[in-house]
């Protein structure tokens, strides 16, 4: 577990260097072009190298003895559970949207989120979910005529 900023910088440095390496490999695959004075890969390559070197610098700086370390405020186990569930709710919301439609998934997401995290009675969460969907329908679908994934509903 990354408990301190020193460990955080080390992890972030490794991650950014990794992103840099992947981006550098992907940049090298960019096809050449006959037009222009700047190859399409030039800037991505420069930025990838900057990320690799900058990431390495972060790691080295974090290892230096004069580095002033600080603890990172992570949530407690219950907080992690809430965090994970909130993220899972959001991911499910996005995942189910194309199949179930925007309105139904919005209703399910808001109702579940409010009921679980707010510990409200289910009818309160239900009312908020319904109100939110009603507002979104009137404003975005009916008035502004925006196209959202419809799902089983014909709009």
């Amino acid at each position: 577990m990354i408990k301190t900023l020193r460990a955080g910088d080390t992890a972030a440095g490794i991650f950014l260097s990794g992103v840099g390496v992947i981006a550098l490999l992907a940049s090298m695959q960019i096809a050449s072009s006959m037009s222009g004075m700047l190859h399409p890969r030039t800037l991505p390559v420069i930025l990838s190298i900057l990320l690799i070197l900058g990431g390495a610098w972060l790691v080295l700086r974090a290892r230096a003895p004069q580095y002033t370390d600080k603890p990172i405020e992570w949530p407690d186990p219950a907080g992690w559970k809430r965090w994970g569930l909130a993220l899972a709710f959001m991911a499910s919301y996005a995942l189910l949207m194309p199949g179930l439609g925007f309105l139904l998934t919005t209703f399910l997401f808001t109702t579940t989120f409010i009921a679980y995290f707010g510990k409200y009675k289910i009818w309160v969460a239900f009312a908020w979910g319904l109100g939110t969907v009603g507002f979104i329908y009137v404003l975005f679908v009916w008035l502004l005529q925006m196209d959202f994934p419809a799902g089983p509903f014909p709009f």
């Binding site: 992103v19 940049s27 096809a31 037009s35 399409p40 930025l47 990838s48 990320l51």
Partner: peptide, 19 residues
């Protein structure tokens, strides 16, 4: 990092796919 992810997609001048 912000600049790099903004370069994903087609090159603005040549239309070559990048990353």
């Amino acid at each position: 990092f912000g600049l790099l992810i903004s370069m994903i997609g087609l090159d603005p001048l040549t239309g070559v796919a990048r990353m």
